[in-house]
């Protein structure tokens, strides 16, 4: 069964739905109209461009081009994750880049080789789409993880130093903050996994079904991608925090003030 295409005119009709949030925002003075249109415009332009780009990417299906595109996606994801935290980008960009790359490439290559058993493990349809889904979710986790970790340590400067004075090693002193950050980073993914299928039909499954595959195939892909998301999010959050310790703390175990944007 082929997916029913949406004409440009029909797609335009989708935008009519936006009248509802516009009216609600006007009635209650939510001041959401401008941000709403800004986000809708950005989303539409970005997706149109990426649609054209992906069309050619799938057409060429060149391993080198695919890897370069995935690398660009990683760079943008790292940049976005760090920008949302209070830490200076130039301080932790490299550790972030390394950990995101390891987490994304390792999990995608595992899926393509071991799970899906692709002949061409760098096939654009798989490496770009799966990589994108992992990155999008890792990004959310990392924004929470990195921000929580450094925000709490900055807030708790004195209790942290007190723990060092008790004889704690640097790792022992940061461990409570590390645990909390990783738990918070994974919480949304774990929560959405626990309600999946009941509360919502997940994006990938919907896409696969609309793409013409049977629900059985869609479910298998969805289970695979959810496990991959948890694993890659955890790897990237843990690695990013651990790898930034070297640059964000001095050798006496004290958090450097100059790593924060407001310093």
């Amino acid at each position: 069964m082929d997916t029913v295409d949406i004409t440009i005119l029909s797609l335009g009709l989708t935008f009519l739905l936006l009248i509802v949030p516009v009216i609600i925002s006007s009635i209650y003075g939510l001041k959401l109209i401008k941000p709403l249109f800004y986000s809708v415009a950005r989303m539409s332009i970005q997706l149109v461009l990426i649609g054209v780009f992906l069309k050619y990417l799938f057409l060429w299906n060149n391993m080198f081009v695919n890897l370069v595109w995935l690398a660009i996606m990683v760079v943008v994801a790292v940049f976005s994750a760090i920008r949302s935290s209070s830490v200076k980008i130039r301080k932790i960009f490299l550790p972030g880049l390394i950990s995101f790359s390891i987490a994304t490439f390792a999990v995608v290559i595992y899926l393509n080789t071991v799970v899906i058993s692709l002949k061409n493990i760098f096939d654009a349809r798989y490496i770009i789409v799966l990589g994108g889904m992992l990155l999008g979710n890792s990004l959310r986790g990392n924004i929470v993880g990195i921000s929580t970790f450094y925000k709490n340590l900055k807030k708790d400067t004195k209790p942290y130093l007190y723990v060092l004075s008790l004889g704690a090693s640097r790792f022992e002193a940061i461990l409570p903050y590390f645990r909390e950050s990783v738990q918070l980073a994974l919480r949304p993914t774990l929560a959405s996994m626990a309600t999946m299928g009941i509360v919502a039909l997940p994006g990938m499954m919907t896409g696969v079904i609309l793409g013409g595959a049977s629900p059985e195939v869609a479910i298998k892909y969805q289970i695979m991608i959810m496990i991959a998301i948890v694993v890659s999010t955890m790897i990237s959050v843990v690695l990013t925090i651990l790898m930034t310790l070297r640059v964000c703390f001095n050798r006496c175990g004290v958090l450097r003030k100059d790593v924060f944007n407001d310093q």
């Binding site: 209790p159 130093l161 007190y162």
Partner: peptide, 12 residues
């Protein structure tokens, strides 16, 4: 060294 700071930052 046993240290106590003036805010008694013993955590929560």
């Amino acid at each position: 060294i046993a240290y106590i700071d003036q805010d008694v930052s013993v955590g929560d």
